[in-house]
């Protein structure tokens, strides 16, 4: 990746995007921008999240995740101003990047966002944070502890898909749990067992069963 203010590489790709007339050609143009992996493309990729074009949004999220760290602050700054559809995509990008700075935003969104697509993306992201990127062991343990508490709570969300995301988050967290949190592991397992036995949706029961199998 190169940071370039003149962005000679980006400009032709932007021209292609701006002349695109159909949802499909917009998507193709966004795919090209994403594939170029240019840091200066972060603002336009974030803008695409608000186009109400799911195909283009998927491509933009992939592009932002590949760019990674340089996309984190712009995403966090812009999250407030988005409509709920675009917020879900932005949260998904943040979740995919897994940057430690996203944790507070992801935890808050997973628990209390009014839009279920946002809670879903956030719950997934909470479990998949890049734990090794937290600055020290203390921070890492504190962050995991917070993530665990959040995901256990989100397993009670009224929407099945949010609970499903929480279960996948618990599985991911279970694989990465720090040794200092070994005492917490039985709580995590017990919560998954409750889902297997008690969730109203058979898909949730199956997913929690799979999580337990993979953690055994």
């Amino acid at each position: 990746m190169t940071v370039s203010s003149g962005s000679p590489q980006l400009q032709p790709l932007l021209d292609k995007l701006h002349s695109a007339g159909t949802a499909e050609t917009v998507r193709f143009a966004v795919e090209d921008i994403a594939a170029a992996q240019l840091v200066e493309a972060v603002p336009i990729l974030i803008e695409v999240l608000g186009y109400n074009n799911p195909g283009a949004a998927v491509a933009a999220v992939d592009g932002l995740i590949t760019i990674g760290e340089p996309a984190v602050m712009p995403l966090m700054e812009l999250l407030d101003g988005f409509n709920y559809g675009a917020r879900a995509w932005a949260l998904r990008a943040l979740a995919g990047i897994g940057d430690p700075r996203g944790i507070d935003l992801l935890v808050k969104a997973a628990v209390e966002d009014f839009a279920l697509s946002v809670r879903r993306a956030a719950a997934r992201g909470v479990g998949k944070l890049h734990w090794q990127e937290f600055s020290g062991e203390g921070d890492r343990v504190a962050a995991q502890s917070k993530a665990l508490e959040t995901l256990i709570q989100v397993c009670d969300d009224p929407e099945w898909v949010v609970r499903y995301a929480a279960v996948t988050g618990l599985e991911a967290l279970g694989h990465a749990l720090e040794s200092q949190l070994a005492d917490e592991r039985p709580h995590l397992i017990a919560r998954l067992e409750t889902v297997v036995l008690g969730d109203e949706a058979p898909a949730l029961q199956a997913r929690a069963k799979l999580a337990l199998q993979r953690m055994a």
């Binding site: 799911p54 195909g55 279920l116 697509s117 099945w160 898909v161 499903y164 949706a201 058979p202 898909a203 199956a206």
Partner: peptide, 20 residues
Amino acid sequence: LAENSLKLIALKGLLETHLQ
């Protein structure tokens, strides 16, 4: 090419029909 929300609902239906 459709919303993830809808694809998730479809896959959930598929999975649950299969489990049944």
